[in-house]
């Protein structure tokens, strides 16, 4: 498939513009699904028009749900829980640090899933999703590193050490930056998105390394507190954590939806401009 040829690009433009149109709005005779490649089975769920119809009302719901839950969770974590027996009040940074780590890693999992969907079904919406997730994912990974440093100084006695957990998380942050640059370059050169998608899958090897770094190697960072079978954080300190986790996740989802809608609008505008220039 020669993607950079004019014909392929024109076909893709038609596909994006017609996909962005509301279903059955006005009878035109242009082919509605002219996207080059196989017609995917998941098409019904991945149609941008349908996506926008769901995303428009969902964005403010997720945003405000996130803001309210974050506010409640932080209030609870700052005022309603006891201090830790060893670390004292310092432990409260947990309620930001853990959600940041969760979303930094969860963001990359979502990029990987989007990349697989994109490579298998060739649907442009999946690549748009991956690109939309990358920036907030990178920001949360950075937030995890920053809050970790602030937490490490009073407890461990150091801002930073090159131990397995800290180093692998820093690598994930750099991998995010690489994905953002690669996806941007691919888009500017009218690439077909395959290279950033492969990169998105390749980066996944870091996730188990981050998770198990504290088990495999001697590290300064303590072992995992939360596993499948339970938690070694006492109930009285733990309960605000699910609230902030849900809150930051909703907020993350809202940001991703906003970015996806912006990207779709931009693609649509660019495709229309190109078509007009050719006419």
């Amino acid at each position: 498939m020669s993607v950079n040829s004019g014909a392929a690009r024109a076909a893709r433009d038609v596909a994006i513009v017609s996909l962005c149109r509301r279903p059955n709005a006005g009878g035109d005779d242009r082919p509605r699904f002219a996207y080059p490649g196989r017609v995917p089975a998941l098409h019904a769920f991945a149609n941008p028009a349908r996506f926008l119809k769901i995303a428009r009302p969902l964005t403010p719901i997720m945003f405000w749900a996130g803001v309210v839950l974050i506010a409640v969770g932080c209030w609870a974590g700052l005022t309603q829980t006891p201090a830790d027996y060893l670390q004292g009040e310092t432990v409260r940074i947990l309620y930001i640090h853990v959600p940041a780590a969760w979303l930094g890693m969860g963001g990359w999992s979502s990029i990987a899933i989007s990349s697989i969907v994109f490579l298998v079904w060739r649907h442009p919406l999946a690549m748009i999703a991956a690109r939309a997730i990358a920036a907030p994912g990178a920001i949360f990974a950075a937030l995890c590193l920053i809050t970790g440093a602030i937490w490490g100084r009073p407890t461990w006695g150091t801002w930073w050490q090159w131990d397995g957990r800290l180093t692998s998380m820093l690598l994930l942050f750099f991998v995010y930056l690489g994905f953002i640059a690669l996806a941007q370059a691919d888009r500017e050169r009218d690439g077909d998105g395959r290279i950033p998608a492969l990169y998105g899958i390749a980066g996944t090897v870091l996730l188990p390394v981050i998770r198990y770094s504290v088990v495999w190697w001697n590290t300064l960072h303590q072992g995992p507190s939360i596993g499948l079978t339970g938690s070694s954080i006492d109930r009285s300190l733990l309960w605000p954590l699910p609230i902030v986790l849900a809150g930051f996740s909703f907020f993350f989802g809202a940001v991703v939806l906003m970015r996806m809608r912006t990207m779709l609008a931009r693609e649509k505008a660019e495709a229309r401009l190109r078509r007009r220039a050719r006419a």
Partner: peptide, 26 residues
Amino acid sequence: LAKHDEKYMPPQMAGKMHETRTLEEQ
């Protein structure tokens, strides 16, 4: 550098329930 373990709890519980075993458990 101080290394703490993965257990967090209020001070009242520390004496009874907590025994720091960071390295042995690993």
